[in-house]
Computed example of a mutant assay.
Amino acid sequence: MENNRQDISIRPESTEAKLIDAGIALFGELGFKATTTRMIADQAGANIGSIAYYFGNKQGLYLAIAETISRCILEKLSFADAPNPKRLNKQEARAELTAILHRMIDVFTKDNEAEKWLMLILREQVSPGAAFDTLYDNAFSKVQSHLSQLVARVCGTKPSSHQVIVQTHMLAGQVAFLLVGRTPLLRRLAKRESQLDAATIAIAKNTIALNINALDA
């Protein structure tokens, strides 16, 4: 059966969606090899044969998860509505770059769904495979390219320059590490809760803005 990816967002209670949700949690926690189809089916409350029916096999489910995460990243960051960087002047590009990175902070610190993706994405960064290619082609490269164009507008250079690509990578990396390094940060701040509070997030956003302002200093 051909899997209709759009149904996953339209029908969150569908078997496909439940299998994807279970796979995201288990693959992220245990890794691809240690996660069995039985584990996924049990967590999803589905028949084990449903994985083969909808996705072909475990690898097919894993790649479908990568496609789903890629689509959701672009949706949550509102890239479909983003203005064309080439039409922005320097100040507009700076404001748009700041807005996107602030939105990234909100997504990765406040969105429970996005937090579930994190471990799976990190695993693919450390040991890239076919799923990483899907994530890169469908999401990472698009985000990096768009942000690079904004950085280039701010700096007055070419988006393809190594300097701009690295600067963009470092800016986005600060946002990712805010969540990855949340536990030591909270301990350093002597906070007992497991989530970053509004005041800490505000400081993080201000730091990002300061770093963006320093791009063309």
Rank of each mutant, 00 (worst) to 15 (best):
Q6S: 13
Q6C: 06
I10D: 12
P12M: 06
E13F: 11
E13Y: 12
T15R: 14
A17R: 15
A17W: 03
K18I: 07
I24P: 02
A25K: 09
L26K: 03
E29L: 13
G31I: 14
F32S: 03
K33T: 13
A34H: 10
T36A: 06
M39F: 04
M39L: 11
A41K: 02
D42C: 14
A44K: 04
G45I: 08
A46Y: 06
S50I: 05
S50M: 12
I51K: 01
Y54E: 03
Y54D: 03
G56I: 04
K58G: 07
Q59A: 15
G60H: 09
G60F: 06
A64V: 02
R71Q: 13
S78M: 13
A80W: 08
A82C: 07
N84Y: 06
Q91D: 15
E92C: 10
A95L: 08
E96K: 08
T98V: 10
L101S: 04
H102E: 15
R103M: 05
M104R: 02
V107I: 11
T109I: 06
K110E: 14
D111Q: 13
D111C: 10
N112L: 09
E113F: 08
L120D: 01
R123H: 14
E124P: 03
E124V: 07
Q125I: 14
V126G: 08
S127T: 15
G129C: 10
D133I: 05
Y136A: 13
D137G: 06
N138Y: 10
N138C: 13
A139L: 02
F140S: 02
H146Y: 15
L147Y: 00
L147F: 02
V151K: 00
C155D: 04
K158C: 09
K158F: 12
S160K: 11
V164N: 00
V164M: 03
I165G: 01
T168S: 05
T168W: 03
G173L: 00
G173I: 01
L179A: 12
L179I: 08
R182D: 02
R182S: 07
L186F: 04
R187K: 11
A190K: 12
K191E: 10
K191C: 07
E193T: 09
E193K: 08
L196W: 01
L196P: 02
A198C: 05
A199M: 07
T200R: 04
I201F: 05
A202P: 04
A202L: 06
I203C: 12
A204M: 11
N206F: 04
T207F: 15
I208S: 00
I208H: 00
A209C: 11
I212A: 00
